[in-house]
Design a protein around this nucleic acid. Structure first.
Lengths: 124, 124
DNA sequence: CCTATTGCTATTAATTCAGTAGCACAAGAG
DNA sequence: CTCTTGTGCTACTGAATTAATAGCAATAGG
């Protein structure tokens, strides 16, 4: 069952659109698929390869969800994002920027732990 | 295993931060938990209730991931987002706005299908 | 001592995902 | 027509993840 606005979804039966979005986008591979489809049309198998050889059964299921949610479509060239889905791309690009800062934060925390946890070892 | 930048994650072994972010945030309940934690600190059980009585084992697993990723922390008041995680909130608010437009699009598509598929019924 | 709340764990069942093989269809080459 | 190639997609089985329930240890208040 594909989560859609105006109907109950996992963890919320209020029908609020944000809840359906959090449910749908929170499914495994869903964000990744949207990310990989941000460019030109991709065939099923190209998309599969882009996602690191995701199994076709799962990709098929996710594409079915995304099509039911009108976020992806399949035309003669391959799979593409709908206009509605492309409106989500700025948020994904923001996520990319954020992830860089996140990586820096993780790296800083790691080297900080090195100070406390491996003082002896750092000497040798 | 918690997906982190600078290391291979599901579907990508390049270590690119965006890939770790897509993997982590794409796990079930993860986005929802970040969403529910956007406000004041919440106890474990309050968070559980906010997520619609999510089972404690899954919530525990997700909180473990989020803490390993330094996106959530547990202080005396309860669970809160870290500064890094709060930097993600604008994107989540953008997602909320987007979801409203998405809902409108779905509603429009539904009433359009009614024109084609259930012409008789719309007359009753 | 009794009660209530906290974070958390253990156990088992249900669901989802992964991996593999292969089908039906269409287009192009010979 | 036949052979090959690429397409979207399905079936099947085992592995991993998630769900649901019960309950524990620690803490605080009465």
């Amino acid at each position: 069952m594909t989560p859609l606005p105006k109907q109950p979804v996992r963890g919320s039966d209020t029908g609020r659109p944000i809840m359906a979005a959090l449910d749908l986008l929170g499914r495994r591979w869903c964000l990744r698929i949207l990310w990989e489809l941000r460019g030109p049309p991709m065939t099923f198998r190209a998309l599969q390869a882009a996602c690191g050889e995701i199994s076709p059964s799962v990709l098929q299921q996710r594409l079915k969800d995304l099509r039911a949610a009108r976020l992806a479509a399949h035309d003669g060239e391959g799979y593409v994002l709908t206009a509605t889905a492309r409106a989500l791309l700025p948020a994904l690009l923001a996520l990319q920027d954020w992830s860089e800062a996140w990586a820096a934060e993780i790296a800083a925390a790691a080297s900080e732990e090195e100070q406390h946890g491996t003082e002896g070892k750092s000497e040798q």
